[in-house]
Amino acid sequence: MKKKGGNVTLSEVKEILDATVFVGEEKLDMEVKTAFSADLMSDVLAFAKEHSLLLTGLTNPQVVRTSDMLDIAAIILVRGKTPPEETIRLAKELNIPLLSTRYILFETSGRLHARGIVGCIEKVPLGEMT
C-alpha cells in the first residue's frame, strides 16, 4: 500500500525488505524519508544527504565511516551481503544501524520507493555529471 509523503520507520523498512538487523535493534523506531543507493563511496560523499538511508553492496568499514561523516540514518546492505566483523564493530561504535537484505539494489530501492521513501536528491545538479 502506498503511503503519501509519510515517514517510514526502520522497523517497517526491515519488514518491507525482509532484512536482518546487525546493528541498531534499539533504533528501529527511527523514521526516514529519503534514501541514496550507490556502490561508489565517492558518489555517496558527493551526493548523499543527512538522515537518509544508504543502500549499498559494499561492506567494508569505510562504508560506515562515510555514513558517519554524512549523518546517514542507517545502512542497508543489499544482495544478501554479510558485513565483516570490523564493519559491525564500527557501526556499533558509531551507533549507525546496519541491516542486510537479500533483495538486489534495484528491488530494494523500488520497494522502498513504493512505500513513500524518495531519493535524497532526484538528479545530480547540471554541470556535475561525470
Binding site: 556502490d39 558518489d43 555517496v44 558527493a46 561525470t130
Partner: peptide
Amino acid sequence: ELGFGAGMGLPNINK
C-alpha cells in the same frame, strides 16, 4: 574496490 577513487574527491572539496 573499496568504493573510492572515482575522481570525485577534489571537485567535492571544491563544492
